[in-house]
Design a binder for these strands. Structure first.
Lengths: 218, 218
DNA sequence: TGAAGACTTGACCAATCGGTCAAGATGAGA
DNA sequence: TCTCATCTTGACCGATTGGTCAAGTCTTCA
């Protein structure tokens, strides 16, 4: 058996440094974009010299790619809540809530993603074409089945998904605008809960699901 | 009376050059962000030498500011369609349609705006705090009155506006993602019309307005 | 304990980019 | 036609920045 390492051993220090760098990088890339961010800025924020950052991540691009891959993993976790239940009311509610919570807790990740798409996805194009496309098509099929089973009104499934993505991510990507329109202050927990309930309410009613009533509207 | 100038006169050439530069700048700023865009790139796209660009716009920032102000003017025009009619069904429908059409026809402008907010609005913060804030508050008041008059269901007006902004702008800002998920092809006119109708339908039903029925749900 | 590898870091370099400049071309008015 | 202001442009400059390097320091393990 190999001996246990002290918490400050080589490998632990390495893991800790990589974590610090990735955390700093996520914020700096989110707020300045890939081009606007400098490795010096990221190193400063991580509290290490720039040369040391380049020891762990040889190029700015490799660091960026790692950040984007982490974000994509978080996104995929939330995507699974869509399948919590086969009832559209429960599935849509938990999916919207999960995405809203991610925007609240990981706004920087969402901003990096938005930047990527805005700049035509130079790094994540392959994810869009494979994982994201497959996920989207399979969920469209689920929604079409719900519609056929009269569990919800006949709406275009693709547009519904885009509305959910757009709205939930808006609370991260456009957070600065939302704060400015909220007297310059971040949304309180209460305000954010109101937003979540309102989004869920409008989407559910919008697709003809009325929690207190029965099925779909005509 | 001043003599008419030939079409290729000084002032006409100046106006034409400024238009070319602004058009090129909008696209390049949209796709690369402020930092990512280079004046050389913009000049190339406008078909003039870089030094000439700096003759018309002394600094990159002054050019950027002009682009953003043009975009804001277009945005304000669309905002007025909100007041076409005091009936929420008509007002919301025409506002959503106007914003969707802008995303379709001026996607670059929307992307520049998104970039600005993502980067904490270094150039347009004053617009957010004055014009946008006033517009938003006044429309929230209108929506609250509609709710009090039972013309629509009691939803949080702010969240409703954010959903409309997020969704309509998504079709410009995330156009690359939408294209990728559409087999790499731009949305056809027919697909885009479907999207518009679906968004209007979900929002109207979401706030309890049923065009074929009467007023609001409880 | 000492050798070898892993990590740290200040100094440095080449490339890029925003902006300048001076010399010339062009058009309008007298 | 002459003059002057406007416009055009290639060459250039200083600042920034991604990335390198060599000279160290620290851990680990035989």
């Amino acid at each position: 058996m190999k001996p246990l390492q002290k918490p400050t051993s080589r490998s632990a220090a390495r893991a800790e440094n990589e974590r610090l760098i990735l955390e700093a990088a996520e914020t700096v890339f989110a707020e300045h974009g890939f081009k606007g961010a400098t490795t010096g800025q990221i190193a400063d924020r991580a509290g290490i010299p720039k040369a040391n950052l380049h020891y762990y991540f040889p190029t700015k691009e490799s660091l960026y790619r790692q950040v984007v891959e982490n974000i994509f993993r978080i996104w995929l976790d939330a995507a699974n809540t869509f399948d919590d239940c086969d009832d559209p009311e429960v599935a849509l509610t938990s999916y919207i809530n999960a995405k809203m919570d991610i925007s609240r807790r990981h706004p920087m990740g969402s901003k990096v993603w938005a930047n990527e798409i805005l700049h035509k996805a130079p790094v994540i194009q392959d994810y869009l074409e494979t994982t994201l496309d497959e996920w989207t098509e399979s969920r469209i099929a689920v929604i079409e089945r719900w519609i056929a089973e009269k569990k919800m009104a006949p709406v275009d499934p693709r547009t519904l998904l885009y509305m959910i993505w757009a709205t939930t991510q808006h609370y991260a990507d456009f957070n600065h605008q939302i704060e400015t329109l909220n007297a310059g202050k971040p949304l309180s927990e209460e305000q954010f809960e109101t937003a979540k309930k309102t989004v869920v309410g409008i989407i559910l009613a919008g697709v003809g699901i009325h929690p207190n009533g029965k099925g779909a509207g005509a």
